[in-house]
Structures are given as C-alpha cells and as structure tokens.
Design a binder for these strands. Structure first.
Lengths: 234, 234
DNA sequence: CGCCTCGTTGATCTCGATCAATGTGGGTGG
DNA sequence: CCACCCACATTGATCGAGATCAACGAGGCG
C-alpha cells in the first residue's frame, strides 16, 4: 500500500534528513520516494533478509528487534517520526523492523537512495548526524539494560514516554500531572527494558500503590509525582 | 606526547577512514594529524567535557564507558585498530574514553577535521560506514547484555577475543587449539559483559574444569574445544 | 455466552550479586 | 636475594531481585 505524495506537506519535513535540501534536491528525492502505511504489528524488514529499502518515519513508531537462536528477544532500538530507517551500504538488514502502532514511512529503494546519497553531500551529512545520534542513544540504553534495576528501568521508561508525549503535543504544564497512552503493551515494554511481563506489571503496581502514578486504563498512565518518579529512575 | 609522522607507513592505512583517500587528500589529513601515545589506564576523553578531538586508533585498544550517577559502570563500546574515535558535530563527548592497553591514536582537532569532512566526500562516506557498523555492533551487544546468561556471555567473549586474535595474526589453524592473551583484567571483562568480577572468575573456572579452555596464566587463554565453547555461547 | 488475548497477582526457584576470606604473582626496597 | 606489599584473582557462603510457573481477572468480539 504505497502512494505518491509531495514532500511539501510532509509532517517531518524539517526534522528529518530532508530538512536541509533545496527544492530541486527535494524533487529528486520525491521522485524515488513512496509514502507507505504500515499496520500495527506488521513487519517491514526481517533480520538477515536483503536490505531492500530505507526511508524516514513519518508517523507512528517502529521497533528494531534482535533475537537469540533459541528465541529470546530484545528491542534494540525504537524509531519515531523523523528517524531514519534502514541500512544503506549493507546487503542484509541487521535487525527485524516491526510497527508497534499504525505508522507511515516514506520509503526509498536502497540502490537509488544510495545513488542520491553519493550525489548530495548534504543528505549524507544529515544521515551521518542521525547515525551518530542513534549510536549515542543505543549506548546510553546499554547502560540501562546492564546496570539499572527493574524499578529504575520502569521509572525511566515512563519519564521517557511522558517527555516524548509532551514534546509531541507541546503541552506546557511542567511538574503538573501528565496523562498519556502507552503505545506498547506489557510484553513490548518488557522487551524494551530487558525484563519479563510480570516484572513490568509488578513495578507498575508498586508505583500505583505508592501514589506516584495512576493507571486509569491498562494503557493509560498519569504521572502524579514526577519528582518521585525521577528519583526512582536514578 | 604527540609526534608528527607520515600516513605512508601507517599500520591501519587501508582499513581506517583514510583507506580511500588519494595522496593529495592524505597529505591534507596528515597536516592536521598527530600520532599520540596513550598509556594503559590513561583517559583521553571525559563524558560531558568538550569533544575537542577525534581520530583513528592505530594500535592497542580503548573502551567507551558510561556510568550512572551513583557510580555503576558499563563499557558501551571498545575501539580497536582502524576504529574511529570521537564525535564530530557534537559539542560534548558522550562517553569517557580510556586506554585499556598502551595504545596509539592518530588524532585531529575536531574543528579542522570537520572542515576536512565537509570538503572530502569520500572521508565522510567512510565515516558513515564506520558509524553504521558501530551501531550494528552496539545493538548486537544489547541483546547479549539483556538476554544472555553469564556463561553465554563469557563463552561468547572468549570466542570474540580469539577470532580477533586470529585475524590479527592471521593464523590458519581452524578448529585447533588457539592461545592468546586477554588485554583485559577480570574487572574490565565484567564491565564489558554486565557482570561482576566474581561471576566472570567463576565462569572461567567452570570452563577450565570442563576442559573446554586452559588458563596457563591469569591473562592467558587456550581454547581446547571450540565447538563446546560455541555451543555454550548459544 | 464463551472464547481469546492481555494483564495482574501469588508462590517458588535460581542465577548472579554481595560480603568475606584466602591465594598468587610481580615489583620494590631493604 | 629475599621479604614484603599490593593489586588482582579465586573461592566460599549467603542473599535477594527478578525469572519462572501457575492461577485468576478483565475487557473485547464473534
């Protein structure tokens, strides 16, 4: 399910790779790009398969997953709007990419995109910055996975999701209670944090009993005491 | 302690960033580069400080470390010869960089290096490839940190070190016993794998008692049964 | 209504951390 | 040359966080 469309009205126009391109360059990119909808749960790239496409996330959220031979899984990265997806110059995709909510991605076939990269230095430079940023994020997450306790992980995760929510909706209520919906179910949170479903659930219950958060719905979270949550996140 | 020197006799000439440059470009790079020795244990970059330099690792090994506010540490990356060090376009260094053995690095002041990057597309392209490779490595390591058991971690680590040793010395004894020295002490192995010193030590003892490895010296390892080690690594 | 997925809660177990003591090898100074 | 030291490594005993196994609850949908 792909549709042609113009870059002009792109929601992530000035945050993604394309931000620095002039109109002529953008037109070129537009020519090889397709806007593609990906349903929740759908996998658009399998680890080990040929890395045929790359692109920009327009809306929604996707996750990168690695797994051991015997099936233990770990989320090794999450892609949000304006993030870059795929792996130029690689023959096979290193990780599996799956939509965790309904999403839209602006995709390019890898070869033509690589071609464009080589012709447009600005595009390559932006990609380099994105790659470095992703590398820093990933390394920071390593510290969390290896050294933080379950309660630190869950507290940190909630703060992370809250701040993402706040920047999306640009709500200006610093310190006040924030309510938002989690795009992930318990299993997905567990995958992300290197925990089990049960541990995530117990940690959330603990935070609820301590009055730090409220859980009006199973996917809905209200942060009632951000300071306390922050101190638990360490 | 820095010395000028020529790229012509550089040990990592054709594996590092510089591999694709022509003589004129190399001369330019040479003009702003310094060969710098770093003693074992010495820190050349502190997380949060200004990211003043970047460069290529020539020999030895360095580690990137992240730590929590209360002092728990995690190695989030290791740099070997030909790896790129530093963070162009960032104002502060994201992680602390320390030499784990006596090392040599070819360093550039960040600003002039960035300048050169902008002028030489090939350099930028190589850096992009390095960054992607580092990203894949880091994400793969996340799976290990979060989901593998202590014995899987240690077995995998030994195989990793052995293969690195083999490629360095290009020894051609596939399957046969391989002997090599670890550049890391037990504490550093623990940091790398997200374990404690005691657990690493116990796992090594277990492998020794099972006859899978021999430990002729405290830093020396002989792999006696690679297949068994590989099956423990999962 | 019954089924199915997801989430919560309880009981128990296990791996690895922690605390503590002992061993070892290499370097230094008497 | 040897005795001592000190950092590093090993080994043992115990503890506890989180995994695992199991049962139950709550909403959504045919």
């Amino acid at each position: 399910m792909t549709t042609k469309s113009s870059c002009a009205d792109c929601a992530v126009r000035n945050r993604s790779l394309c931000g620095t391109l002039d109109d002529a360059e953008l037109a070129q990119l537009n020519r090889i790009g397709h806007r593609q909808r990906i349903a929740r749960g759908e996998t658009i790239m399998w680890a080990g398969d040929e890395a045929a496409i790359c692109g920009n996330v327009l809306s929604g959220a996707l996750q990168l997953t690695a797994s051991t031979d015997d099936g233990r899984e770990q989320t090794v990265g999450t892609l949000y709007p304006a993030d870059f997806l795929g792996r130029p110059y690689a023959n096979e995709a290193p990780f599996t990419v799956k939509a965790i909510v309904d999403s839209e991605v602006c995709t390019f076939a890898r070869r033509p995109f690589e071609q464009l990269l080589e012709e447009h230095v600005k595009l390559e430079r932006q990609l380099l910055r994105h790659a470095f940023a992703a590398l820093d994020d990933t390394r920071t997450q390593m510290l969390t996975l290896a050294r933080r306790s379950a309660s630190e992980k869950v507290a940190g995760f909630l703060l992370d999701m809250a701040s993402r929510e706040e920047t999306m909706t640009s709500r200006a209520t610093p310190g006040g209670p924030v309510t938002f919906d989690l795009p992930l179910n318990r299993g997905q949170i567990a995958d992300l944090l290197g925990l089990t479903i049960e541990t995530v659930s117990r940690q959330l219950t603990k935070l609820k009993l301590a009055g730090i958060v409220a859980l009006p719905g199973v996917r809905t979270v209200t942060i009632r005491d951000e300071a306390a949550l922050r101190s638990r996140a360490g």
